[in-house]
Computed example of a mutant assay.
Amino acid sequence: MIVDAAAALLGGALLLRFWMQAIRVRPPSSVAQFTFQLSDWLVRPLRRIVPGVGGYDWASLIGAFLIVLVATSVLLLAGWPGTMVLIAACQRFLEWILYGFMALLVIEAIFSWVNPHAPLAPFVRALNEPLLRPIRRVVPLVGNLDLSLLVALILLQIAQLLLGVAFSAR
């Protein structure tokens, strides 16, 4: 349980680092300092092997997968074959991505209700914009209420269910 919590924290920081760079969002200094200090020990050596290509920080994404793989490798001790451990790691990695997007959407919803002018609110809005923009084109405002967050959460939960079905079939 402690290994999973530590892996989730580090993996989340690595995925956040990748997403911030992928959509070119400049984080507030406190978020940047936390994310970079937590993940530099892994990202910097990986960048020597896997350089950033196309404006993407592939070292952060691969680092997140390696963290998932290490956390999942505990299943080897339980007698799981290596290929099953790799498949379980892929599933957990995709789940972490989906949970990360869900968490960002929930944080944005909380900011919009509690304090839309909070210092982190524009940063979280910018992180969610690539997810919400296509939905906002399709889902109109209902009485000046933006339901795109709710639709995105439902779509992410459907993706999570499909992911579980796809990996349980193997």
Rank of each mutant, 00 (worst) to 15 (best):
A166D: 07
V142T: 11
R136A: 05
A166I: 08
V165Y: 13
I135Y: 14
S168V: 12
L141T: 03
R136E: 04
L153S: 10
L127G: 03
E129G: 10
I158Y: 11
I154W: 13
V151G: 09
V165T: 12
R125W: 11
R125H: 15
R133S: 13
A126K: 11
G143H: 02
L156G: 10
L127K: 04
Q157Y: 12
R125A: 15
A126Q: 08
L153K: 13
N128F: 03
R125T: 15
R137S: 09
L131F: 10
L162I: 09
L141Y: 04
L156W: 12
P130R: 00
P140D: 01
I135E: 07
A159C: 12
L153P: 15
L161N: 10
L147R: 00
I154N: 13
V124R: 02
L161P: 14
I158M: 06
L162Q: 09
L132F: 07
L150I: 15
S168C: 07
I154E: 08
V138P: 05
P140Q: 01
L127I: 03
R133Y: 15
P140M: 00
L163E: 03
P134S: 00
P140T: 01
A159R: 03
L145H: 08
P140V: 00
L149A: 04
L127C: 06
A159Q: 02
A126I: 05
Q160R: 15
L150S: 10
I135S: 07
V139Y: 10
A159P: 11
V165C: 05
L132A: 05
S168P: 02
E129P: 02
A126Y: 13
V124G: 02
L153D: 06
A166T: 10
L131R: 10
L141W: 00
I135V: 09
L131Q: 02
A166Q: 08
A159K: 01
R137N: 04
L162E: 13
R133P: 05
Q157R: 14
I135L: 08
P134V: 00
A166E: 07
R137T: 02
L147N: 04
P134N: 00
L145M: 09
D146C: 06
A166F: 09
F167V: 05
A126W: 06
L155Y: 06
A166C: 06
N128R: 11
A126V: 09
V165R: 12
S168Y: 14
I135F: 02
N144A: 09
L131W: 03
V139C: 06
R137A: 03
I154G: 13
